[in-house]
Amino acid sequence: MTQERGREIDTREKIVAAATEIIREGGDARPSVRAVASRAGVGASTLRHYFPTQRSLLDATLTELYSEAMPDIRIRDTSVPARERLIECLWHLLEPFSTQAAARAAWKTIYEAFMAPEATEEARIGYLVLVRQAQQRIESWLAILDAEGALQPGSREEQSHFLMAVVDGLSLDRAFPTVDERPTFEASTLRLAVEALVRPTP
């Protein structure tokens, strides 16, 4: 039973990984069952066993993309200044939008899945769940810094929402034609946002 369960998890992970690769490569924002099954090396019926609808497959794929983008990195490493740790974590949120092509593909996926006129209410609710997961991760980072006495007073929910808005803005900006100064602007924007929340280092 344990081995069978392990095989099921492996197959599911292979399918999600295949869909994630297709989206990350700038392919179809809503990969077809045939394309994902082919990439994963499984039959369409096997894919349907784990993901009965394209919606369920896309939700799992986007959750995986969020998880990859949100490691805790060195947030607990007190040998590094609190500001630098938080900035490092926020930089990693931008990794799925690392290039203009990747940013456009990611935002295309988000639009078609959750914002397009044909998106269902169920899809929009799913998006809110994903956003809440991301916000909770940021809140956990802030809680760690708060326990160290490094965070400015205020609502962690509001602070995390503020940081999410900054990261979303930068990720959307990456989808537009680039300018040479963009990396400098991004770094200064993140630093200004973090400095608004983290106490100055004594």
Rank of each mutant, 00 (worst) to 15 (best):
E118C: 10
D59Y: 09
I22N: 04
P71G: 04
V131I: 04
G26C: 04
S45L: 06
E21W: 07
V80K: 02
T63L: 13
E68F: 08
G27T: 05
R83I: 09
L58I: 13
E118R: 11
A102R: 14
S56M: 12
I23L: 12
R34W: 02
T61L: 07
R24H: 13
T99Y: 06
G126C: 00
T61I: 07
T120M: 11
A119W: 09
H92P: 08
P52T: 11
P31Q: 05
T109E: 03
D77T: 05
L86F: 02
V129T: 15
S98N: 11
T61S: 11
R30V: 13
A101C: 08
R30K: 13
I15L: 07
A19F: 00
E112Q: 13
G41Q: 03
I110K: 10
P96Q: 08
R124H: 03
W91P: 00
P81V: 02
Y111D: 13
V16F: 08
E84R: 07
A69K: 00
E84W: 01
E25Y: 07
A103C: 08
L90D: 05
R132F: 12
T109K: 06
L130V: 11
V42M: 02
L142C: 07
G43M: 03
A116P: 09
P71C: 03
L57E: 11
Y127D: 05
D72Q: 09
A40Y: 00
T20L: 06
L93R: 11
E64D: 15
D77R: 01
A44S: 12
A44L: 02
A35V: 02
E112S: 04
R137Y: 00
Q100P: 05
R30L: 15
L128P: 03
R124C: 07
A116K: 12
R76M: 09
L130F: 11
P96I: 09
W91G: 03
S56L: 12
A17Q: 05
E95W: 14
G26R: 05
L130A: 13
A103D: 04
D77G: 02
E88F: 00
Y66N: 15
E25H: 07
A17H: 05
D77M: 01
S38N: 04
R74K: 10
P52M: 05
E84F: 03
E118K: 09
R132I: 08
T20Y: 06
R76S: 10
P96N: 08
L128I: 12
T63S: 14
V131H: 11
F51E: 12
T99P: 05
R124I: 03
E118G: 06
E25S: 14
I15F: 08
P81N: 05
A29G: 15
D72M: 03
E64H: 14
R30A: 14
I87M: 04
S56K: 14
L47C: 03
S98A: 15
A37C: 01
A69L: 00
E64K: 15
I138Q: 01
R48T: 09
V16K: 03
Y111A: 06
